[in-house]
Computed example of a mutant assay.
Amino acid sequence: MNIRKLCYLATLMLSFHACIKDAPINPEADIETFRIDRQYLTGDVFIDQANARIVLSLTPEAFDSGVRPTITVSSGASVVPASGDSLKFNGTGTKQYVVTSANGANKKTYTIVVANLGVFAWDFEHWLVNDKDKYQYVVEIDSTIADTSESWSSGNPGVALSGVKKDPLEYPLRATTDAYHGKYAAELLTRGGTALSNLVGIKLFAGSLFLGVFDPTNAFVAPLKATQFGQPYLGKPSRFTGYYKYQPGEKYQDKAGNIIAGMKDSCSIYAVLYRGTVRLDATNINTSDRILARATIPDGGPRSAWTKFDVPFVELQSYTGNDKMMMAIVASSSKDGDTYKGAIGSRLVLDSVQIVPQ
């Protein structure tokens, strides 16, 4: 190779180098995995990225003694407390993890939420408001440790993505003082869709309340998979009880928004016990071969006064009650709301719900 060619090659390489810019430093600040030894879990860990929460289902022993999670974060990011540090729930330890991006420009704070495992009875007395989107959600208060836990979720986080006004009264689930017992009950209302939801064919949102978690990452891509039903349960249930009121809306509509003459809306309230720790969702909560027992109110028609339901669990498979299992409770102001059919204005009020053990 002569000198002229070498000079040409060197000039070309310098030109390429000048055109190549350094790759930007990663701006992401996410917890990607949060692992705990399975012997300390009664259900899978759920990372709610949209709301920056990590939901843990722990054995009583793990709750009492604490755990040491193994954490991975976005490339180059750091997390405080560090992966492997002790996480305690006795009021002395942190309940938040702060992730700082590799470029130092972004921070994200994750809150630890412990799903309640114990007595399956609720009066829906304690409600909080989501800071960002202003929807209400129900929590349980544990006075012995001055802490809150969450067992229930709803479709409210999904409705928040539809462009609804940031006001608790604009969402399908909210607290009401029209209670059977105590000060508050859960009010579920079927409401019309928004301009954004109409673009993807969602003409209404049924009010929903369920034991489990909502995964907003699936809310528009695969909405039926976003509602993940169930919390860890031990033993054998005998009966499903509670109190409700129901008033259907005036005009029943199909998925396309067409009014169906003569069709009446109805509510849905049921409980499902199933095997395993991977949650069922709206695509398989009624069909999965993991379902062990089920209890469903027989009639979802109008009830102007508080009405008690007390239905037995029907065993569909034999089981001992000692396996890892999940209990789902699902309530909706429109029975066919999962397929976006129902009547706008349908109202279900629910209170004093309980799973009675054998």
Rank of each mutant, 00 (worst) to 15 (best):
M1D: 14
M1I: 12
N2M: 05
C7N: 15
C7I: 15
Y8G: 02
T11C: 14
T11H: 04
L14Y: 01
S15H: 07
I20G: 03
K21Q: 13
D22M: 14
P24W: 07
I25T: 12
I25K: 15
I31R: 06
R35V: 10
I36W: 01
I36N: 04
R38S: 12
Y40Q: 06
Y40F: 13
D44G: 06
F46M: 06
D48R: 11
Q49H: 06
Q49W: 04
N51F: 13
R53C: 07
R53I: 00
R53D: 03
T59P: 00
P60W: 07
A62M: 04
A62T: 03
D64A: 10
S65K: 08
V67E: 04
T70I: 12
I71C: 00
I71W: 02
T72W: 05
V73M: 08
S75L: 13
S75P: 02
P81M: 03
S83T: 09
G84F: 02
G84R: 08
S86Q: 13
S86M: 15
L87N: 05
K95A: 12
K95T: 14
Q96E: 15
Y97C: 11
V99G: 05
K107C: 01
K107S: 12
T111M: 05
I112S: 01
A115L: 11
A115N: 14
A121F: 15
D123Q: 12
F124P: 01
V138F: 04
I141E: 09
T144D: 10
A146P: 03
D147M: 06
S151E: 05
S151T: 09
S153K: 02
P157K: 11
K165P: 00
K166F: 02
D167E: 04
D167P: 01
R174G: 12
T176Q: 04
A179L: 02
K183Y: 07
Y184T: 15
L188I: 08
L189C: 09
T190R: 00
G193T: 13
G193W: 03
L196T: 09
G201M: 08
G201R: 03
S208Q: 04
S208T: 09
F210E: 03
G212N: 13
P216H: 13
P216K: 15
K225P: 01
F229P: 00
Q231H: 14
Q231N: 12
Y233M: 11
L234W: 06
T241F: 09
Y246I: 07
Q247Y: 00
Q247E: 03
P248C: 00
K251D: 00
G257F: 01
A261L: 07
G262R: 00
V272R: 08
L273C: 10
T277I: 13
R279V: 04
N284L: 08
I291A: 08
A293V: 13
R294G: 06
R294Y: 15
A295D: 09
D299N: 15
P302L: 12
P302M: 10
V311H: 02
V311Y: 02
P312D: 14
F313D: 02
Y319V: 09
G321E: 12
M325P: 00
A328S: 13
A328G: 13
D336F: 06
D336H: 09
D338N: 05
L350T: 14
D351N: 13
D351R: 08
V356A: 05
P357M: 06
